[in-house]
Design a protein around this nucleic acid. Structure first.
Lengths: 243, 243
DNA sequence: GCCGATTTGTCCGTATGTATC
DNA sequence: CGATACATACGGACAAATCGG
């Protein structure tokens, strides 16, 4: 249970913005005022504000103030920037999520897999194919590749629940960051079958390819996430560099 | 010309990482060492490192150090997280970019447009349709909506060059942030015609919808960017929150 | 297992610069 | 011009994690 001040302030401000205690387009209290409110240093306030900027909640204007630019529409979105497991996002979006394991096997990395995933040759991995349902509809097919040496004892039962739960709470692994690429790809027969898509309707889908690293700095997971195009939505907030 | 120390350090470290002066998977010099190297405070070093973390270049490990996790594969990517104009990214990717203006008109926002873009009713806007070529191939169709009151004097000639150039250097507007959503949509007849796509091949494309804000906090631009699926690539690095 | 050295994480106070009004 | 507000930078203190002896 970390009780970091800047995160407390960040959450509090976020909540006040979402609850419209600070009106849209208006300025938040000045940094010095917030220092007095939260009884902390200006650095700490600025850190909280910085997090809100990257979230797209506010924008800071030199010499003027910090303006609220949050629009509640974003709440309806399915996915935001962070790293989330399917289970976590289901809960956050208050939907009923379910997962079906289609394949579960151990493999040794050959040249083809090595080129695709970036794992070194000859290492042993789990290959898992899973179908994720949201409110009863099959929306996502995941192809997961996990390094077995890092994640021993993985079972289909765990895969059906939440692998990230297992990693973080049972193995006490720390997931640090994830490099992701969004592309559009042609539908395969597997996609068509499990996602119940009609080629005459959509013949492509959205693919998120991600490489995930733990605190040892090793990439322990390579995943290809194939999303039904009509339910896919990837949100982002970009900040312009001043140059 | 800002000469901020932390940005200098950031750029220098970035360059050293890309140039493999720091080997992959190895630790960078400790923060205290960097303080001595760059003759600055620890805060300043930490700020530079923080930027590298969000770029996915390094990961920091509590009590251990800062590890280089940069892989040069990423150089081939077309688009990264930031806000870039087509012209800027063409230059960065060392490709020959060209732009053709398909439509250019003034409109008054009706209910349909208001719902789509979020612009208030009755405001006057420019609607611009542009086709972007990279190395001679038509890759992107952009549908831009600009608030005329904010951006007076826009012409087809400017639209053919770079609108962002005009905004920043002629009008001295400051572009601050951009909220983006990536989705997959069905091809329209316009897409098919200009992007030279065959419906029997791909019948969808990647769409980036963005709302861009200036330093006045007002959304002055709504853009729908429709990308050829076979050339589309959207990169991202996500950092796991510790909770 | 403990202790000390190293390293990153959090937080504070202060000073100075720069943009806005 | 002065007051206010954000931006950059410095230096110091302590906590927490890691590692070697």
């Amino acid at each position: 249970m970390p009780k970091m001040k800047y995160e407390q302030i960040y959450k509090d401000l976020k909540q006040k913005i979402e609850g419209e205690e600070y009106p849209y387009q208006e300025f938040l209290p000045s940094e010095n005022t917030l220092v007095q409110i939260y009884h902390c240093s200006r650095n700490t306030v600025r850190r909280a504000i910085g997090a809100l900027v990257t979230d797209g909640y506010v924008q800071t204007l030199h010499g003027k103030g910090v303006r609220n630019i949050f629009r509640p529409i974003e709440q309806t979105s399915y996915m935001i920037g962070g790293i989330e497991s399917f289970k976590e996002s289901s809960i956050r979006n208050k939907k009923e999520g379910r997962t079906k394991v289609l394949q579960f096997m151990e493999l040794t990395v050959d040249e083809k897999i090595a080129k695709k995933t970036g794992f070194p040759l000859e290492t042993v991995i789990y290959y898992i194919q899973r179908l994720h349902y949201l409110d009863g509809k099959p929306l996502i097919i995941n192809h997961n590749y996990f390094l077995k040496s890092i994640i021993p004892g993985l079972t289909p039962q765990i895969a059906e629940q939440s692998i990230y739960d297992y990693l973080e709470h049972t193995l006490h692994m720390t997931i640090v960051n994830s490099k992701r690429v969004v592309t559009v790809e042609k539908i395969t027969q597997i996609d068509e079958k499990y996602l119940q898509l009609d080629v005459n309707d959509y013949n492509c889908l959205a693919v998120i390819t991600s490489q995930t690293f733990n605190s040892e700095g090793i990439m322990f997971e390579f995943t290809q996430s194939r999303h039904r195009p009509d339910y896919f939505r990837f949100q982002d907030n970009a900040v312009r560099k001043s140059n």
